[in-house]
Amino acid sequence: MEGLISLKSSPGTSLRSFPSFNQPPNSFARRFSMDLPLRRSSFPAIRAQHPGTISPKEEEEEDALKVKEWEVGMFQNEVAASQGIRIRRRPPTGPPLHYVGPFEFRLQNDGNTPRNILEEIVWHKDTEVSQMKERRPLATLKKFIENAPPTRDFVGALKAAHSRTGLPGLIAEVKKASPSRGILREDFDPVEIARAYEKGGAACLSVLTDEKFFKGSFENLEAIRNAGVQCPLLCKEFVIDAWQIYYARIKGADAILLIAAVLPDLDIRYMVKICKMLGLAALVEVHDEREMDRVLGIEGIELIGINNRNLETFEVDISNTKKLLEGERGQLICQKDIIVVGESGLFTPDHVGYVQEAGVKAVLVGESIVKQSDPGKGITGLFGRDISL
């Protein structure tokens, strides 16, 4: 029956003959998790070009990488688990969207209950992105990118701020709510908050685009960009599909967040290449030693964010930053000239000083400044002095 099995995919995805199902699934996943990064590395590096200028060769490489991503997606949770990723991309059980044969037959049971808030977010995002892709296919997004303005230098802005102030460059977060804290600011005007951040000395801005859990939107990102705010913008999204990177680009993003707790190495490699092709910076977020080691093994990483919040329990411990930057890891980061961004739990000048001493050159802060009546003054309070221009 091996050669007779028909598997469906999303529109526009090329299918190849699928490997034998006589192999145990875990064996198949291990083979792909070890083999695919090597195959990907054989592709020439995709160089950043003027946004929208994508050569036929690059499109062929992108399509080939996407096929591999699809193939691994058939056993995505198994591949992720082999790399220590506990967040499942989608429910492992439950009725399929359409019948595709006995190997996709699944039953509804307790496996459909998210094990933590991050998994709940990711499962919802999987459904949300699928619907958005149907309304706005990738081919449509690429046409919009052709007319998009150039991206701003996100990494350069952080370096310049650090050089100017002697303090970590600030990525100030435009955030209305969070699952752990609820509504942070009732009188939420994203453009006015962004302007206050810029006036207060922020080097870059982070804009939450998740609607259900953080009350954000891509419209907020677009409004801030169109309002003339000069700070480079990070799209703070739970990225599970390269489509989201293209969408962020046309909405005005200059950088995008990739979360190692969610994305296997294969996805991170692929998405970093897409970011470079579109002129975007990629902030790759880690929160434990294993994730840090995985990300340090990936070529082309320029920014690593250390989240002091446990993404499963949402507990915060800023000593996590120091722990992840000690010893050989810290030395390797210096050798690779990677900028480390401290994230979560930063409320006072002492907190900022602690993570700076540990080795960070930038900090991403939201709650402690967005809740202030004057976010600009909140920045002064965070650093202990005025850092505005």
Results as ranks from 00 to 15, higher is better:
residue 178 S to P: 11
residue 359 G to T: 12
residue 173 E to Q: 07
residue 276 K to A: 11
residue 148 A to V: 15
residue 104 E to Q: 12
residue 141 L to G: 08
residue 375 P to W: 04
residue 166 G to W: 05
residue 169 G to M: 04
residue 375 P to Q: 05
residue 117 I to G: 01
residue 260 A to F: 06
residue 251 K to V: 06
residue 11 P to V: 03
residue 203 A to M: 12
residue 244 Q to M: 03
residue 316 V to S: 11
residue 247 Y to S: 06
residue 8 K to Y: 10
residue 254 D to P: 15
residue 53 T to P: 00
residue 139 A to N: 07
residue 213 F to C: 06
residue 305 G to H: 00
residue 253 A to M: 06
residue 317 D to N: 13
residue 272 V to D: 00
residue 158 L to N: 04
residue 13 T to C: 06
residue 73 G to H: 01
residue 373 S to G: 11
residue 354 Y to I: 03
residue 385 R to F: 09
residue 241 D to H: 05
residue 325 L to D: 00
residue 22 N to T: 09
residue 136 R to H: 04
residue 28 F to K: 08
residue 147 N to V: 09
residue 83 Q to I: 05
residue 327 G to H: 07
residue 234 L to G: 04
residue 127 T to F: 11
residue 258 L to K: 01
residue 3 G to F: 11
residue 337 D to K: 15
residue 81 A to W: 05
residue 150 P to Q: 02
residue 95 P to A: 15
residue 231 C to A: 13
residue 179 P to S: 02
residue 236 K to I: 00
residue 234 L to Y: 04
residue 71 E to L: 15
residue 54 I to Q: 05
residue 376 G to W: 01
residue 336 K to C: 14
residue 11 P to H: 02
residue 64 A to G: 09
residue 389 L to S: 13
residue 153 D to P: 09
residue 67 V to T: 13
residue 18 F to P: 00
residue 54 I to S: 03
residue 68 K to Y: 12
residue 21 F to Y: 06
residue 139 A to S: 13
residue 349 P to G: 05
residue 31 R to Q: 09
residue 182 G to R: 08
residue 379 I to H: 01
residue 1 M to Q: 10
residue 173 E to G: 10
residue 224 I to G: 06
residue 348 T to F: 07
residue 389 L to N: 11
residue 115 R to K: 14
residue 352 V to D: 00
residue 225 R to Y: 03
residue 118 L to F: 11
residue 320 N to T: 10
residue 147 N to H: 12
residue 77 N to W: 01
residue 321 T to C: 13
residue 53 T to R: 03
residue 49 Q to N: 14
residue 268 I to E: 00
residue 237 E to T: 05
residue 190 P to K: 08
residue 185 R to Y: 11
residue 171 I to A: 06
residue 144 F to M: 14
residue 74 M to R: 14
